[in-house]
Design a protein around this nucleic acid. Structure first.
Length: 487
RNA sequence: GGUCCCAUCGUCUAGUGGCCUAGGACGCUGGCCUCUCACGCCGGAAACACGGGUUCGAUCCCCGUUGGGACCA
């Protein structure tokens, strides 16, 4: 009985699925004119998360029709950034430059159906018209000279969209509600230049129609393009996708993010030792919220992301918060995961470490105190040196004759123990301290300097256990020799 | 200039008419813990842009002002 009902329901669901009416299809359409910056990455992330959240599809499309500014290097940089962030796509990448014929076909459809017309107005005349309109306080829009002429195609004619002259075009925005545009404000915009190349709005709409995109999340700098695009959808008889315009990411001075705000490219943060999980957590929380929760894993983001909690106000990029979040993600990651990210930075420092128990133990002692992987690599350096590089002032301050005797006793005790784990080591130290009447505080820094060469490091005992007996007694001996030689 | 969007601590934000003496996070700051540095814990300063309405009651709804932003030139 029960099984029957379930079967019936799943059948119903499948039937809808076959028509593809209920699968959300989102997209990310970057222009390859530079690296992927933080704002773009966030847009990509929102679309990716929404697709994953709804078990829909995510399409990648490269908008490279601007041949002057598009480069292969930028395309590669975008792929690299997306890969680092863990944003994968189900379809594409499509390249607009390879779809020109498709756009031309759709332009012809509009001409044939009477929704577009050829226009031979000269740029000079248009410019004159524009400045005249501006001077008299009017709107600089096309006056419709060629609208009803029924011009035939010719070598130098542009194509204009025959836009509705009255009424409203309403953008039903999932984030902002309805935005109403008076069709009077819009004009017969160009959809094909005189050389036959499609314009931005035409290409985007044709792509989104042919790729079955039904959900468009993009920056709110696109709001004013939207009514034009909706009119195109209507002219093509295509169903209009759901729009959601997300607020922009601003620099500290509340202006559009640019070079002078510091590092903006996503991969720059990778190179500065940031954790991709922290990056996506940060980017998503900039403009989206889930109550008071600040920390999210990728999995949680996929589960919890929704459109309801996307804010409307533009947000300022706050590098300090990203740093704090990075530290938190490092702390929350497994030693194995961290090792994958840390290895390149160790290599950069000339340290030839490899994955395994030793590296994991090293990371274990460092992850509470590292805000970035670079910091961690710096902090890990002493673990991989055969001989400690003594920091001059540290040595002078802490490796003094006063600690020579205690160090000798410690050396002997360490040499004669077989077990080298933290509890054993602590016990050894307690006994020596009791015997000598020394406070641990007096001997801790000298030991630290002996083991690492520096005054800042992980805890004494965890370091000792990680380094192992041989390394530890070697380093303590070296410190004793140093003091003897200096005095 | 026109059109459109936006407005809670310095920053990211919670809040959808009474639960607000406005909550959390970063940052700042006082303290605790402590072998250094961190982590952690306890505490503090810090905001509803302004003016009108609507309502018994507005951070929350409406209008305007101001201020920011985007797009079109």
């Amino acid at each position: 009985m029960c099984g029957f009902i379930v079967a019936k329901n799943s059948f119903k669901y499948l039937a809808q699925g076959e028509k593809m009416n209920n699968a959300i299809i989102t997209r990310f359409p970057p222009s390859p004119t530079g690296y992927l910056h933080l704002g773009g990455a966030r847009t990509a992330l929102f679309n990716w998360l929404y697709a994953r959240h709804t078990h829909g599809r995510f399409v990648l499309r490269i908008e490279d029709t601007d041949v002057e500014r598009s480069t292969q290097a930028s395309v590669d940089a975008i792929f690299e950034a997306l890969e680092w962030l863990g944003i994968d796509w189900d379809e594409g990448p499509y390249f607009q430059s390879k779809r020109i014929d498709i756009y031309k076909g759709y332009i012809n459809k509009l001409i044939e159906s009477g929704h577009a017309y050829y226009c031979t107005c000269s740029p000079e005349r248009l410019e004159e018209m524009r400045s005249k309109a501006m001077a008299s306080g009017g709107k600089p829009k096309y006056d419709g000279t060629c609208r009803e002429k029924g011009l035939r195609p010719s070598g130098h004619a542009a194509v204009r969209f025959k836009a509705p002259l009255s009424g409203n075009t309403i953008v039903e925005d999932r984030i902002r509600g309805n935005i109403v545009f008076d069709n009077n404000e819009l004009d017969d915009f160009i959809i094909a230049r005189s050389d036959g190349m499609p314009t931005y709005n035409l290409a985007v709409v044709v792509d989104d129609i042919t790729m079955n995109i039904n959900m468009i999340l993009r920056g709110d700098d696109h709001i004013s393009n939207t009514p034009k695009q909706i009119q195109l959808y209507n002219a093509f008889g295509a169903s209009v996708p759901v729009f959601g315009h997300v607020p922009m990411v601003l620099g500290h001075d509340r202006t559009r993010l640019s070079k002078r705000h510091g590092a903006m490219s996503v991969t720059a943060y990778r190179d500065m030792g940031y954790h991709p999980e922290a990056m996506i957590n940060f980017l998503v929380r900039l403009g989206w919220s889930y109550g008071d929760q600040e920390f999210f894993t990728r999995q949680e983001l996929v589960e919890k992301f929704n459109l309801e909690h996307i804010g409307k106000a533009a947000g300022v990029f706050n590098p300090e918060k990203l740093l704090a979040l990075n530290a938190e993600h490092i702390r929350a990651s497994s030693d194995e995961t961290i090792s994958v990210h840390l290895l390149p930075f160790l290599k950069q420092k000339g340290i030839h470490a490899e994955k395994g128990d030793y590296l994991n133990a090293v990371i274990g002692t460092l992850k509470q105190r590292s805000k970035t992987f670079i910091e961690m690599a710096d902090g890990a350096e002493f673990y991989f040196q055969e001989k400690v590089t003594l920091d001059e002032s540290a040595a002078v301050k802490f490796l003094t004759p006063a600690v020579l005797e205690p160090l000798r006793q410690i050396f002997q005790a360490l040499e004669s123990t077989d077990k080298f784990d933290q509890p054993t080591l602590e016990k050894i130290f307690t006994e020596i301290l009791e015997k000598t009447g020394l406070k641990f505080g007096k001997i801790a820094q000298p030991i630290r300097v002996a083991l690492t060469g520096k005054t800042v490091s992980p805890g004494i005992f965890e370091m000792m256990e990680t380094l192992g007996k041989e390394q530890v007694i070697g380093r303590v001996k070296a410190a004793i020799d140093y003091i003897e030689k200096a005095s």
